[in-house]
Write a protein that binds this DNA or RNA. Structure first.
Lengths: 237, 237
DNA sequence: AAGGCTATGTTGACGGTGTCAAGATAAAGT
DNA sequence: ACTTTATCTTGACACCGTCAACATAGCCTT
């Protein structure tokens, strides 16, 4: 009797936890917990990953606000305070998720930018659309990455900054490239221009996400308008 | 004994509550509350206004997050649940504050736009700077007005929408004007262009407020860069 | 192999939050 | 004067983040 596989139902969605160690667990004291306790090993194995996965899921489904450490702990089948052994506090956990978001986006941006078979102009347009599209498709993640929750009061983890900053650096790099190619005005400081272009994308994304003054049926038009605007500006210089 | 003025310490900062009615209050049952209860009338007089003022104060000083109904109630010298007789829930109260913010900003925008002694170009630049400046100077209010808290899940009150929508309509009006004056490109749909320009300002504001990739010492440069960009774009058309 | 160190997980507790229900009070309308 | 209605009260509930103290088990050293 009692469970044979002590690791069951422990790992989260798509993460392969290293179950090798946990598999050697004791089956000796089988009488200890009588009912309602289906053989749970005291230690989880990879709680950190499980928490992050549970968080990512809850994030995309129900938003940042309804994301509590207690629920995540429950999702992972663990007690309320267990997460504190893996994250300093809630903010640290959120930072970790956001860091992954930045890392992912950085990859996507690179991929788009480095398509050497396409014209710089095409890549620029694609970048604009992809950025706004990403935000619209993952509103909760975007909100977490660029929202107030993480950045206010310098609450951002060092780890987070380490990922997020290169991400913007890349925006500057791209901006310089597009300036050289004559797509963006050459008479502006690259850093400022990068801030403004990013700002525009950011702003459009927020308007869409918050549903304030725009809805998703206008994404394409808004992106085109923004891209046109910037590229038109370069024709004078 | 007991207090003679039942309205003392009741009205908040700078609002003149209509104290006329409250002044006629009973002084009869002076023996009721013995100690530590300095003659408080059962009814507040103008709780709604008091709450809004307390909220505005707390907002500017400590941010949206540390704004709880219970604290506001305490500020107003009233029990925890009293606010519920004036606002459906917390979101409704926040909406009311934001509504005032929109109303104020609408006035400011109008004032700037209607300075007939200045050139359209000068007014455009001033508008850009004022917008970003307002956001940077009142980060918490700006966050509340354009942040997620209020707009998500269609939580926005009808009252809020009634004030906020005309505010953006005005942005469209201004955009059309600037297009006519040749300041903004004429080959773009006014609505889209308004969304993009507003988006840019919004984005710059967010970058500044969240302190993600920009800090306040760059406000002027960023505004200039944005204004230049838009106006340069019109030179082709 | 024995014993201790350390990472990890547990329950208990505290103060904080939004919100509902039921009752108290006073103002307003009849 | 009586009733209705607006307002304010205490009590209660279910959450939340977080700390402290204790339990367990894996690991490392001897």
């Amino acid at each position: 009797m009692s469970a044979v596989n002590v690791t069951d139902m422990r790992e989260a969605d798509d993460v392969v936890t290293s179950a090798t160690d946990a598999a050697v667990n004791t089956v000796s004291n089988a009488v200890s917990s009588s009912v309602s306790n289906p053989a749970q090993s005291y230690h989880h194995g990879d709680l950190r990953t499980a928490l992050l996965n549970a968080a990512a899921k809850r994030l995309s489904e129900h938003g940042v606000d309804s994301l509590s450490l207690r629920k995540l702990a429950e999702d992972a089948g663990v007690s309320r305070t267990a997460p504190y052994h893996h994250f300093k506090d809630k903010s640290a956990l959120l930072s970790a998720i956001a860091a992954k978001g930045f890392s992912d986006w950085h990859s996507t941006a690179k991929r788009i930018f480095e398509q050497e078979d396409k014209t710089p102009s095409a890549r620029f347009r694609e970048f604009v659309c992809e950025y706004v599209g990403y935000a619209a498709a993952n509103p909760e993640m975007y909100e977490l990455m660029f929202g107030r929750t993480i950045w206010q009061n310098n609450a951002a983890t060092g780890d987070l900054k380490d990922v997020a900053f290169p991400c913007f650096q890349f925006q500057v790099t791209m901006t310089k490239f597009w300036q050289n190619k004559g797509l963006l005005p050459d008479n502006q400081d690259a850093l400022r221009l990068a801030q403004v272009t990013w700002g525009t994308l950011h702003g459009i994304a927020r308007l869409l996400i918050d549903g304030i003054y725009a809805d998703s049926s206008h994404i394409q038009e808004m992106c085109d308008c923004a891209a046109d605007l910037f590229m038109q500006a370069s024709n004078k210089a």
